[in-house]
Design a protein around this nucleic acid. Structure first.
Lengths: 337, 337
DNA sequence: GATATAAATTGGAACGGTCCAAATTCTGTG
DNA sequence: CACAGAATTTGGACCGTTCCAATTTATATC
């Protein structure tokens, strides 16, 4: 065991061994065209031979930017965000960036800490899905930090920032119209507890479709639950306890819908036959529920990729006007509606 | 718009403004007891006032260690790993570390790149769930990099490293015994395609239970599939196409089991009545499948926490003997068996 | 009030790269 | 062969912190 404390190999060591200057080595490492190929070869060889490891810390310190991108996500328990994360990660990796991941669990304090931490870490940029009750000026504040930012999925009331997300209003509207076209009139909506832009958008999409078709909405059929499978179960129980039961239910997202499906099954009812159910997101698992879930596809992984690319563009051009990409949800009809 | 390029505020700026030396400021920032409280107050105040941001890059460069921990995970499409990740992240965060996340998608090349990248990033340590066909000397190689490492979930044949995982052999064995005790004799096992320590362990747990009970295993009932919902579906179809069908099926993990459940439902069969099904992992979603899945609970989130803590311990004591924690799977009986 | 000791503070040298302006070595041309 | 211009290479300052040894200041003791 050679247990001497070994100072790590630096650019200088290579320089000495290869008989060039450290500047040359530096240039070689970044594949500069200034260097004569023969020299480059020689340097690479000795670098490899000495077991050199590039020190990004030192590099970052000097030129003031890093290859770290912070990604903050709030609910990894929801596969939607995981798929998003996968997309982001793939794109960023491809372009030589590395992902500093943080999970806020919908906690505002954690979110703040995490953002500060990423700033200290000298992140090149941030991809953020804000906690539901984030202050409206959050993006502006991050902007003042000179930290390029792309907001994903959850738009705040303020909209002056790069954004990738889906058209929540149009999505739910489309699903509602579909149900109506199938002859449903007694349609319930299980929404999210709490106020936010996205929550309002979805609810209003539902209400608009109903209004347009001249269908009265019994307010008992519009309920709010926590966004989780348990929320879905609980929502369904509430609806089934009514004297006048709906014949179809539109859910805030797939997680909620899966809870609904589960509760239905428990009660010996069959989704699609006894009650139509539609979700939102089309997470991977929606194709494998029993019965398979009819839902609105918003391609989370693609959204992740788009967000990654938008950030890269922003890094190239920090001062351009804010960009926005909105995915139009596609209704995927499976077995539940 | 004040658009002058602003050099960022450094420790020196604070020093000047607060009329102390930069060394003092440095000491204050790390809450050194050497500093007189009054001075510390003053320094903190000016730091806040100037909008100072700590530069971890510089700090890391100087003292040679960072607060970054690399977490490499291979299959985020499997909620098991996500839950693990959540656990890891929470613990590390609590202790001031930050997670550099990487997703290898079971690709050995990606895994290598990612590890190199983390090394360049000067990570304090690594938590790694190795790609299935990782070379056996991978942990040793990382050890030579002087990079503290905790391997999770997937043990290689070599075992000389910190490890957190579950007892795969005992888990499947227990499930098999349970099925047998329920009167099943025609039990199938849907395993994983490819060889690895963990794959062998599970299969042998199954075979051992059968042997012990003097039950012949029809080799047509022991099949291998890709680990995915589709793998599960495909496996079930294969089994149902046999002249002699099994009455129960043990699955490599919950994802596979969910595929089985889905295919059963599609065929109008009911898991638990027409065919008993048991999974492995007890991912959150197992409680919400239709019908709810009987499975082996291995508490992935807890395993993540344990792995995080083990790494922290290793950072404290780099030269101690390798540590191992094995979770004993608990059979959670729901509706499918 | 002098002295010994403890408590606070400080300047300067690292850490390992990148950047820049200047120096050196090559080319091709007359 | 001299020389301009291009192609390569190079030394030294610098990025923002921490570490260390040394210095200054405060406190206790006689």
């Amino acid at each position: 065991m050679n247990k001497t404390i070994q100072r790590s190999i630096t650019i200088r060591d290579i320089a000495q061994a290869a008989d060039v200057s450290k500047s040359t080595v530096s240039l070689v490492l970044k594949n500069s065209p200034l260097i004569k190929p023969a020299t480059a070869m020689k340097v690479w060889a000795t670098a490899r031979q000495l077991g050199y490891v590039y020190n990004r810390n030192a590099a970052n310190l000097r030129h003031g930017r890093s290859n770290i991108v912070g990604v903050v996500v709030n609910d990894l328990a929801n596969p939607f965000f995981v798929e998003l994360l996968i997309g982001v990660e793939r794109v960023l990796n491809e372009f030589g960036f590395v992902v500093l991941m943080a999970h806020t669990a919908e906690n505002l304090t954690v979110q703040n800490n995490v953002l500060v931490s990423m700033r200290e870490q000298n992140a090149a940029g941030i991809i953020l899905c804000p906690v539901y009750d984030s202050p409206d000026d959050l993006p502006a504040r991050i902007g003042q930090w000179d930290l390029p930012l792309v907001v994903v999925i959850r738009r705040l009331w303020d909209m002056n920032y790069d954004f990738v997300g889906s058209d929540n209003h149009a999505g739910i509207y489309r699903a509602a119209r579909y149900l109506i076209s199938k002859g449903h009139r007694k349609i319930a909506y299980i929404g999210r507890q709490g106020r936010s832009y996205i929550t309002e958008q979805r609810r209003s999409g539902f209400l608009k479709a109903m209004r347009e078709c001249g269908i009265d909405v019994d307010e008992k059929w519009v309920i709010d639950v926590p966004v989780s499978t348990d929320g879905g179960r609980q929502g369904l129980r509430t609806l089934l306890s009514l004297d006048d039961r709906p014949s179809a239910v539109l859910c805030y997202n797939d997680r909620v819908a899966i809870g609904v499906l589960n509760e239905l099954d428990r009660l010996g009812l069959r989704a699609g036959r006894d009650l139509s159910v539609i979700g939102f997101d089309d997470i991977a698992e929606a194709a494998h529920t029993n019965p398979p879930l009819t839902t609105l596809a918003v391609t989370p992984e693609l959204q992740g990729e788009l967000a990654g690319k938008m950030l890269l563009k922003r890094l190239d051009n920090p001062s351009g006007a804010p960009d926005t990409t909105i995915i139009d949800p596609v209704l995927v009809v499976r077995a539940t509606a």
